[in-house]
Design a protein around this nucleic acid. Sequence first.
DNA 1: AATATTTTAAAACAGTTGTTTAATTATTAA
DNA 2: TTAATAATTAAACAACTGTTTTAAAATATT
Lengths: 207, 207
Amino acid sequence: MAKKKEQKAEHDASTEEKILVAAKKIFTQRGYEATKVRDIATEADINLSLVNYYFRSKEKLFEHIMVENVNKLFEKVGPILNDEQLSLREKISELANHYIDLLLENPDFPKFIVNEVLSGSSKIPAITARREFILHSHFAKQVFSLQAEGKIKFHPVQLMMNIMGMLFFPFLGQNLFSHISAPANFRELMESRKKLIPVWVEAIINS
Amino acid sequence: MAKKKEQKAEHDASTEEKILVAAKKIFTQRGYEATKVRDIATEADINLSLVNYYFRSKEKLFEHIMVENVNKLFEKVGPILNDEQLSLREKISELANHYIDLLLENPDFPKFIVNEVLSGSSKIPAITARREFILHSHFAKQVFSLQAEGKIKFHPVQLMMNIMGMLFFPFLGQNLFSHISAPANFRELMESRKKLIPVWVEAIINS
DNA sequence: AATATTTTAAAACAGTTGTTTAATTATTAA
DNA sequence: TTAATAATTAAACAACTGTTTTAAAATATT
């Protein structure tokens, strides 16, 4: 029964798997246009035509990878955003912990987020659906109710911008910032942010 | 003497100018790889070979545009960052005013900033030089002295990340955010930020 | 007006790139 | 084992892309 899976774990990765790993790496790093099918084949160490054999076209493969990425980006976050037991501050703390870990492990994600998720250009349904999801989450309701209760004097979207900016932007400017302090320190800086961001958001709310 | 300039102003844009305008638009929007020389020629409404005639190669033209962009991004900012008369808060206020206006007028800039300026991959000297400049500015000194004076309990780079994040990130997620509130409201939200950001930064410092 | 120079245009070139084909090898099912 | 199916490979194709060439038209210079 579980033979196949065990075999997979023991033996070399299957061709399909190798293509996926290579494609994920190169597509996420360079984007669609800058990625050549031959680059993927070389990186995966397989024959060129196997890419089309397994995934029919470059575009199909790209969408596959993008869906994979966006799922990884949101799978853990959905339950957090909609957990009615968590206060806003607790949610922010959880989000900070989760995303900082995730982005430290996936240095290519920030650019992907900007170019595929935040950019309106993406036609991939999995991405547009996630955007909707966030907007109707319990988290969004909590942020908006801050205004309704008169606890903030500015538009709630401003707060969402700040939270996301504090979370994602450092990774976009990683090369810039890790040039200031020692590059190795970037990780420490990000670890510190896990606890700092909730405090800063609180300060902004009370400003 | 001024004949030529006046002619330029009165008459149609020169071919060189038309290419520059088209190239700036397409390169900034789509990036290097996704931009085809034929796209530029079509957009500029000129013959294909004129692109190479005036700029020798696609790569040369790209660098030309990138330098143009980065200059526009920093020309006004240098004096602000190094103005020893301005307090940190005043500098932040000036920066917010300037960058919010600039990015509202140039919707393509945010992606360019992420992919060319913040990304370490850029080999364009004009960009790397600017990075150095910021790090040694009076502004940077002021931020770092906050820590020396014990006014903040975290690393000064954290504050720089937050300031830049609050400034740039909303424009990166423009499509996302303008989907929440009415799209037309995005401009108003950004206008509000001009005054809000200095307050928020203050709140973060005092947190 | 005649000549030289600059600018524009069309076509072609050479290299790249996504994809397909056809043949071979490996695997599975009978 | 044998037949059928799946996986892999090398080669080729056709469209695309950056660049060059060659010639014509426009402009400037003498």
